[in-house]
């Protein structure tokens, strides 16, 4: 398997089949004298900002701190929760067990449901 080709930027699907987001970042672990390994998948706007260019990091971080759910900056998912790998990565956890949908819920509560017909 190849990490950039098969894991990075792929869509994450939770155990119920819902879209959770995409793999924006990957964390590797380098133990002393043992083989390094892939330990965590990460999602987050700041990570994407950094991948585009360093100049974007501060504005995006500022936005995240002042607008919206103001949750912890990044969502981490342990590699062991990856159940199946295909075009998308299927996990064995529910999206709501993570902070992945924080913005979705925040917008749903504070914006969308306040507009008539939003549901």
């Amino acid at each position: 398997m190849r990490i950039v080709r098969d894991v990075l930027d792929k869509k994450l699907i939770d155990v119920d089949g819902s879209e959770m987001g995409r793999v924006d970042g990957i964390v590797l672990e380098f133990p002393q004298d043992r083989q390094p390994r892939l330990v965590r998948l990460e999602m987050g706007g700041e990570i994407l900002a950094e991948r585009v260019g360093h100049w974007l990091i501060r504005p995006v971080t500022w936005l995240g701190a002042h607008i919206g759910p103001r949750r912890k900056a990044r969502v981490s998912i342990d590699w062991k929760h990856v159940d199946r790998m295909g075009r998308d990565l299927h996990l064995d956890i529910r999206a709501d067990e993570t902070e992945a949908l924080a913005w979705e819920h925040w917008l749903a509560e504070n914006f969308i449901s306040r507009i008539p017909g939003g549901g």
Binding site: I3, Q35, P36, R37, L38
Partner: peptide, 19 residues
Amino acid sequence: LEEIEAERGEESCVINSYI
């Protein structure tokens, strides 16, 4: 460094080589 080859194990995913 453009790619990393890895192997999926039971608990973890170990890195074999760098391309």
